[in-house]
Amino acid sequence: MLLCLEMEGYPMRILDYLSESSVLFLDSTNKQEILSVMANKAAELDATVNVKNFTKAILERETIMSTGIGLQVAIPHAKLQTIQDFFVVAAILQNDAEWDALDKKPVRLVFMIGGPADKQADYLKILSKITLVIKNPARRKELRQAKDANAVLAAFAEL
């Protein structure tokens, strides 16, 4: 289980939720396939994630509005009552994936966030930390060119 360290007097860090085992490098260009693989990874890493329910929630969220936020980044997310702690699964895509992004550009970086339904403030903190990294052009390039999970984690090391 992951701890929300901020409640204990420590600042929240993305690396509290993102680990070497939650970083994927994917060849797929199919949005649904990418989301499915990432949801399966989340369920593999967190026993409180029901892959069927979580995948359904993620896909339903995408029908409301695309999570492609621009800058070749998507941040799909879902919060469910059954999930106990937040997690982040990152996917570095080897090829462009159409995502119906706000800027109409394909996606290359995907950060899936999952967590408890009743912790909106924690979700927003995680989202803001990811946003800080991806707004930086050098870090975005570093992430797109990452060859292993350690390179991805290094981009978040200071946050």
Rank of each mutant, 00 (worst) to 15 (best):
A74L: 03
Y123P: 04
A154K: 14
L59H: 08
F25D: 08
E44R: 05
A149I: 05
K129Y: 07
H77Q: 11
I14M: 14
A138H: 10
A121C: 00
S66C: 03
A39K: 03
A149Q: 09
R108V: 07
V49E: 10
P137L: 00
T131W: 00
E62C: 03
K52E: 15
I83N: 02
A146I: 02
K41D: 05
I58V: 15
W99D: 03
L18H: 09
S66A: 07
N150L: 01
M1L: 10
R139T: 06
A117I: 06
M12N: 03
L59N: 12
A43T: 00
L3P: 02
V133K: 08
N50I: 05
L102T: 11
L59A: 07
A117M: 06
A149H: 06
M112W: 10
F86V: 06
N40G: 14
E62V: 00
Q84M: 01
M7S: 11
P76R: 09
E62S: 03
L26Y: 03
F156T: 06
Q72G: 07
N150A: 02
D148T: 01
I113P: 06
D103I: 09
V110N: 08
S21P: 00
T67N: 07
L153T: 00
Q32R: 13
F86M: 11
N53L: 13
E62Y: 02
V89C: 12
K135Q: 15
I92R: 15
D96N: 13
V110E: 10
K52W: 04
L15T: 13
E158T: 14
V107C: 12
M112N: 04
D103M: 12
Y123G: 02
Q81V: 04
V49T: 09
F156Q: 01
H77S: 01
K129L: 15
A43Y: 05
L2A: 11
S28I: 02
R144M: 15
M7D: 12
A101N: 03
S22P: 07
G114R: 03
K135D: 05
P76V: 12
A117Y: 07
L5F: 14
F86W: 08
Q120A: 13
M1V: 12
K147N: 08
A154H: 13
E98V: 12
I130P: 01
M112L: 15
E44F: 04
P116D: 00
Q145P: 00
D85N: 14
F86N: 06
